[in-house]
Amino acid sequence: MTAVSLTSTIGLRRTRGVLALGLLVGLGLLLATMLLSVLFGAADIGPSEVLAALLHPNDSTEHLIIRTLRVPRAVVAVLVGGALAVAGAIMQGITRNPLASTDLLGINAGAAFGVVVAVYLLGVSSLLVYAWFALAGALLAAALVYLLGSLGGGAPTPMRLTLAGAALTALLGSLTTAVLLLDQRTLEQVRFWLAGSVAGRDLHLMLQSLPYIGFGLVLALLLGGQITLQTLGEEVASGLGQRTTLVKALSTLAVVMLAGGAVAVAGPVGFVGLVIPHVVRFFVGVDYRWVLPYCALAGGMFLVLSDVAARMVLRPQELPVGVMTAIIGGPCFVYLVRWKVRR
Rank of each mutant, 00 (worst) to 15 (best):
M1T: 06
L6D: 15
G11E: 13
L12N: 09
R14S: 14
R16G: 12
V18I: 15
A20C: 15
L21I: 08
G26E: 00
G28E: 01
M34A: 12
F40K: 01
A42I: 00
I45V: 13
E49Y: 02
A53S: 13
H56E: 15
S60E: 11
L64K: 05
I65D: 11
I66K: 01
R67H: 09
L84N: 00
A87R: 00
I90F: 03
G93R: 04
I94H: 04
P98R: 07
L99V: 14
A100P: 03
A100G: 10
L105D: 04
G110T: 11
G110D: 05
V117C: 10
L121E: 11
S125E: 11
L135Y: 00
L140F: 09
A141M: 10
L148Y: 07
L148H: 04
G152S: 05
P158G: 07
L168Y: 05
L171G: 05
L172P: 00
G173P: 00
S174R: 01
L175F: 12
A178P: 07
D183C: 08
R185L: 14
L187Y: 13
Q189F: 08
Q189A: 15
S197F: 04
L207D: 11
L207K: 07
S209K: 06
L210F: 14
P211A: 14
P211I: 11
F215N: 05
F215A: 15
G216L: 09
V218M: 04
V218I: 15
V218A: 14
G224Y: 00
G225C: 08
Q226A: 13
Q226K: 05
Q230R: 08
T231R: 05
Q242W: 01
V247C: 07
A249W: 08
L253I: 13
A259Q: 07
A262R: 01
A262I: 10
V263R: 02
A264W: 04
F283R: 04
F283P: 00
V284E: 06
V284D: 04
R289C: 10
W290F: 15
Y294L: 01
L297Y: 02
L297F: 01
A298F: 05
A298N: 01
A298W: 05
G300I: 08
L303M: 06
V304F: 06
S306A: 15
D307Q: 01
V308C: 00
V308Q: 04
R311L: 03
M312S: 12
E318L: 09
E318N: 03
L319M: 09
V323L: 06
T325K: 00
T325C: 10
A326T: 09
G330R: 09
C332D: 04
K340S: 15
